[in-house]
Design a binder for these strands. Structure first.
Lengths: 92, 92
DNA sequence: TAGATAGTTAGACAAACATCTAAATATCGA
DNA sequence: TCGATATTTAGATGTTTGTCTAACTATCTA
């Protein structure tokens, strides 16, 4: 189930988008200013992130505002946490 | 720099390999028993994980034993941790 | 309602990826 | 050294991905 999330994180542009949204919610246009790719390409990345559940979008007039979905982020962190403390996990 | 790590995690077979190695070190052959893909395909996945620094390998006679490199795993976790506690990060 | 602005959808294309079979390398045991 | 076993490397192939331009949809403003 979290497979889409991991795939979404594989691209550096998408990771950077998440980092920007961590600071503050942004419109698609504001996000676009940070990258050297076309708006359709950025839109495609946003759709990938949305599909993975990592971001949500909401229209405000002409703009569409994107926000981080921390819940899904937490799920991914949960997977990673299984790899910390491996010593204690074993029956030893 | 952690880009290779994230790309390596994008594939479900590779994530499963990491989960298996979390339990115990394995030879390439032992790992292969858990998957329905050819040995060369598995070897390719292992090379990807090795290239990302997520696993290390060591030859023991005829076998090559793979182990998790928890250090690089921790680096990835570090990236995720930046997404927890976002409220406290802001100047508010 | 017409024009401008914000953003997405459609379609094409090259690069990257996962997979396979066949062949090569490395080690062990007789 | 020869044959068997473990694994990787090479080369080919179909699929997925990231990118683009062109066209479309939605909203605002005059």
């Amino acid at each position: 189930m979290p497979g889409e999330g991991f795939k979404a994180l594989a691209d550096p542009t998408r990771r950077r988008i998440l980092e920007l949204l961590r600071e503050d919610n942004c419109t698609a246009g504001e996000l676009a200013e940070h990258f050297d790719i076309s708006k359709p390409s950025l839109s495609h990345h946003l759709a990938t992130l949305k599909n993975a559940g990592l971001v949500t979008d909401e229209r405000h007039g002409q703009n569409i505002v994107y926000s981080l979905n921390t819940t899904v982020m937490q799920d991914l962190i949960g997977w990673f946490m299984g790899f910390t403390n491996t010593e204690g996990d074993k029956d030893e």
